[in-house]
Amino acid sequence: MEQRVLPYLLLLPATLFLCVFFIYPFLLVAWQAFSEGGSFTLEHFQTMAGHWKFSTAFWNTMLLALAVVPVQIALALLMATLVTRMGSGRDLILYIWTIPLGISDLAAGIIWLAIFEQTGFLNSMLAGLGIIEQPITWLSYQNKSTIFLAVVLAEIWRATAIVLVILVAGMGLIPKEYYEAAEVFGAGPWKRFVRITLPMLRPSLQTALILRTILAFEVFAVVMALGGTNLPVLMGETYVWQFDLQDRNVAAAYALVILGISIAFTLVFLRTLRVPREAQP
Rank of each mutant, 00 (worst) to 15 (best):
K53C: 07
A74P: 15
L82T: 06
G87T: 04
M79S: 14
T81Y: 10
T81W: 09
L78D: 04
W52H: 10
S88M: 13
V69R: 00
A74R: 14
A65Q: 02
L77C: 07
A76D: 04
K53G: 04
F54P: 03
L82R: 11
L63P: 01
W59S: 13
I73V: 12
M79H: 02
M86D: 03
I73F: 07
M62Y: 05
K53E: 13
L75H: 01
A74E: 05
A80Q: 01
V71N: 04
R85L: 13
S88L: 15
T84V: 11
V68Q: 05
A80G: 03
M86I: 00
V69K: 00
F58I: 04
L82C: 13
M62Q: 07
L78P: 05
A76W: 00
P70V: 06
L78K: 02
R85F: 08
L66Q: 08
G89S: 11
M86P: 04
L66W: 05
N60M: 07
M62V: 14
H51Y: 07
R90P: 03
G89L: 13
A76R: 00
G87E: 06
V69H: 01
T56Y: 10
A67P: 04
V69Q: 00
A67Y: 01
K53P: 07
V71L: 08
W59Y: 11
W52E: 07
L77D: 06
W52R: 11
R90D: 05
G89Q: 08
M79T: 13
R90E: 12
L77G: 03
A80N: 03
F58A: 07
T61C: 05
L64Q: 04
G87Q: 08
I73D: 02
T81C: 11
R90L: 01
L64W: 03
M62I: 09
V68P: 02
S88Y: 12
L82K: 05
V71W: 06
T81K: 10
A65W: 00
T84P: 12
W52D: 09
M62K: 05
G87S: 06
V68W: 00
L77S: 05
T84S: 12
A65I: 01
M79K: 02
N60G: 12
M79W: 14
L77W: 00
S88D: 07
W59L: 15
V71Q: 05
V83R: 08
W59R: 10
R85H: 13
M62P: 00
L64H: 00
M62F: 14
A80H: 00
W59F: 15
Q72W: 01
T61V: 09
M79A: 12
W52I: 11
A65F: 01
W59V: 08
S88F: 09
A67N: 02
A80S: 10
L82G: 14
G89D: 07
M86T: 03
P70R: 08
M86A: 10
A80E: 03
T56E: 09
F54E: 03
T84M: 11
L82A: 15
K53W: 11
T61L: 04
M86Y: 03
G87D: 06
L66V: 13
G87A: 05
G89W: 05
L63Y: 10
S88I: 13
Q72M: 07
M62G: 07
A76I: 07
G87C: 13
W52V: 12
S88C: 09
V69Y: 01
A76P: 12
L78W: 15
A74S: 12
H51V: 03
G89V: 08
P70F: 14
F58D: 04
H51Q: 10
N60F: 10
M79E: 15
